[in-house]
């Protein structure tokens, strides 16, 4: 019998809730209370997440975010700033000692990204893993990923772009040099792609989630069983949201 992991489809939530839930799963998995878990989710309202090491002031135009009703949150994972709008976001939480996860961090990015690649293949999209943490299609980025390891547990989360609005993205993110902003936008338009752009048609969130689910099942030779957050996870998530991810103290700490 195949090993069974938990599948969570938590729908669309705020940035603060989304990041709190990933951390809650990490804590509960590290204590052996929940199985390895793959989660799919989206963002309402749209939001920017920044990497653990980034500075809000350097990366985000906070006034523009307020004007457009876009939230922002600091992740517990490193990596870059991401505008989360029309995308499928996934997370996977699994013990570091699980045989499916390479000890080497870079290799484990590759392994998890392979699951995404297999999922994209289900949609007829041929992508490639581009270390450190990207997936490219025709040389353009369709997915960014970020991993942390805490309490002997791996959390990797990442995005798969369903559609992309580079102009809005750049009205929210700061660029180092305003003078080259237009050129930068053109460059990013050349370097970023989406499922809609590649296939020339819209594919719904649910269909993409189903494909990526199959990708995880194939790559890791497991069965993903639909589940729900435990009571403890919900309590922890509420606590993390309130005490950490929605606070100025956390979000502006760097």
């Amino acid at each position: 019998m195949k090993e069974q992991w938990r599948l969570l489809q938590t729908g669309f939530n705020t940035a603060f809730s989304n990041m709190a839930v990933d951390r809650a799963i990490l804590v509960e998995n590290s204590e052996g209370k929940v199985p390895p878990t793959v989660r799919f989710y989206g963002w309402i309202p749209p939001a920017i997440s920044i990497g653990y090491f980034q500075s809000v002031a350097e990366e985000i135009d906070v006034n523009a975010c307020e004007k457009l009703g876009v939230d922002y949150v600091r992740r517990i994972t490193g990596g870059g700033a991401v505008f989360h709008d029309k995308e499928l976001t996934y997370s996977i939480v699994i013990p570091e000692a699980h045989p499916a996860i390479p000890k080497n961090i870079l290799k484990s990015y590759g392994r998890i990204c392979n699951a995404l690649l297999q999922g994209l293949a289900k949609l007829g999209i041929k992508g490639t893993y581009a270390p450190i943490n990207d997936i490219l299609v025709d040389g353009k980025k369709i997915s960014g990923n970020a991993q942390t390891r805490k309490a002997n547990t791996v959390l990797q989360h990442g995005t798969i772009l369903l559609d992309v609005d580079v102009d809005t993205m750049f009205s929210l993110l700061k660029v180092p040099n305003e003078k080259i902003k237009d050129k930068l936008i053109q460059d990013v338009k050349q370097r970023v792609t989406s499922i809609q752009h590649i296939l020339g048609k819209k594919i719904g969130f649910k269909d993409v989630a189903e494909a990526i689910k199959l990708g995880f099942e194939e790559e890791f030779d497991v069965e993903l069983i639909q589940g729900v957050l435990t009571k403890e996870e919900k309590t922890l998530a509420t606590q993390f949201e309130k005490e950490c991810f929605s606070t100025t103290h956390w979000n502006h700490r760097r």
Partner: peptide, 15 residues
């Protein structure tokens, strides 16, 4: 000194 950017460091808090 403050070191920011889109890199990765493990464990993160050691930055």
């Amino acid at each position: 000194i403050r070191i920011t950017g889109d890199f990765f460091a493990y464990p993160e808090e050691t930055i």
